[in-house]
Amino acid sequence: MGMRWYVIRRLLWTAFATFVILSATWGLLAVTPNQSVDQLQFQVASAGGSAEEAAEAFRAARGLDRPLHERYLDYMTNMLSLNWGWSESRSQRVTTAIAEAIPYTAIYSVPTTILSILLGLSIGLYSATHQYTKTDYAATFVGFFGYAIPNFWFAIVLLLVFGVNLGWVPVVFDADAPLLSGRMARQLILPVFVLVTGTIAGTMRYSRAEALEYVQAEFVKTARAKGASELRVLARHVLRPAAVPLVTILVGDILTIFLAASYLVEVVFGIPGLGQLSFEAIVAQDTALVLGTTLIFTFVAILGNLLQDIAYTVLDPRIDYGDR
């Protein structure tokens, strides 16, 4: 009973947080001067027209002359009904532009997530069971390296070495390649590699630390003593209790790192996904598209947080939800 109530409250809280974030974004946009008005005024004035009238006409056309609460209500309705406006730089609806970009983001983020979790977990577990060996130190080093190296710079260097000098991978991303083809896979090797090295550090170090708590536990020793195989000990007795806190890391923190990293990686490699869409919108001062793409990333993060909390409650029956 406690758990269901907790999940419901968590859902309501997510809705409220989304509402607050949307309102805050609206507030920010409402108080900042609209740059396109200035541009328009300048254009009209240089063409010999009245700048004031043009600005008025522009405001009226955009509905900016209406009272604040009407504009706010309008904005919120549009946001909730997925009517996110018109992208002027791309001459298409914001939602259409986003829908077109999502496959390109998914095509590399799905393999990255799977690889990063699998590799991170297994290396972390190995490190925990072989603590203070050379492999453990090497793994820790790789973890530090992957975390500390700036993704965008690493991507550039790899592109130089493997794309330009060795010619193993194409330098320019070919968006026309079919999504599930060898050609696509070849040009996604480097982005996936860069992202995995960046995100694996967290998974690895967390799983190592979590598993370490259980490697010397009494019940693990008992399992060994009664003759359970090493694999069974690892999977059933170490990984299971360690999985609970791990889930929270995997979903929440990894997601945050991943979102920011993928943004830069897309820009460097020229993958026409959400990150590059957002970046191009910023360069073109296309406010509707900037807002839409930023909010998409934010919603993904909010959803990740929600899933993480729910997973936590489902996985760990010991937690008391009385006062949460």
């Binding site: 979102l259 920011a260 900037v290 930023t294 990333f297 993060a301």
Partner: peptide
């Protein structure tokens, strides 16, 4: 905390 830091900074 829900608002991912990088995108908050980007938007601001």
């Amino acid at each position: 905390q829900t608002f991912p830091a990088f995108f908050l900074f980007l938007l601001l």
